[in-house]
Amino acid sequence: MSDARPDTKTAVLVRDDLAPWQRLNVTAFLLSGITAAHPGLVGQPYADGDGTAYLPLLGQPVMVFEGDAATLRAARSRAVGRGLATALFTAQMFTTGDDAANRAVVAAVAGDDLDVVGIGVHGPRNPVDKVLKGAHAHP
């Protein structure tokens, strides 16, 4: 096992007033976006001692944070302003049933007016840490 600390960071920030199922759903969706944009983050497939194969996972830890609505809005603005790869989930996306509808509800609202319930970011550690200012580790 390597003790080397990656020079990048992957983090998810979810709004603190979401139901538990919503927090998990948002986290999964956001990580899928980060993984799609950064396939090099994915490690090698797993296998158990019996030779049963399992899918590969992200090769670095994912930090999960929470914050209130104002913290999410500010984090989205900082992430976009820093040009970080950013995944987004808005409250309106809970009312849709497919990817095209999700994109449509996001496209209908100006960035500063989005009802952000989650963001995922990946990038150099220091800029990601600055994006997460005001958030705290998810319990």
Rank of each mutant, 00 (worst) to 15 (best):
D112H: 15
D115P: 01
D113W: 12
G118V: 00
V106F: 09
D115T: 03
R103G: 09
V116C: 01
T90I: 10
Q92T: 05
D98T: 02
V106D: 01
G118S: 02
A107E: 15
D98R: 03
V106K: 02
D112T: 06
G97T: 14
L114D: 02
T95W: 09
T95M: 11
L114M: 12
V105K: 10
V117L: 01
D99A: 15
V117F: 08
F94H: 05
A104Q: 13
A100Y: 09
D98W: 08
A110L: 10
M93Q: 11
D99P: 00
A107I: 07
D99Q: 12
D115A: 14
T95G: 04
A107L: 12
G111H: 09
A104G: 05
F94M: 03
D99I: 13
A87N: 04
A108E: 08
F94E: 01
T90R: 00
N102M: 11
V106Q: 04
V116A: 00
A104S: 05
A100S: 04
V106W: 06
N102K: 06
R103V: 10
A110C: 11
T86E: 06
V106M: 10
A91I: 06
G118I: 03
A85G: 02
T95C: 03
A108C: 09
A87I: 03
A87W: 06
V109W: 08
L88W: 04
V116E: 00
A104D: 07
G118T: 05
A107Y: 08
V116I: 11
F94G: 01
G111K: 08
F89H: 06
V116N: 05
D99F: 14
A87D: 04
A104Y: 08
F89I: 04
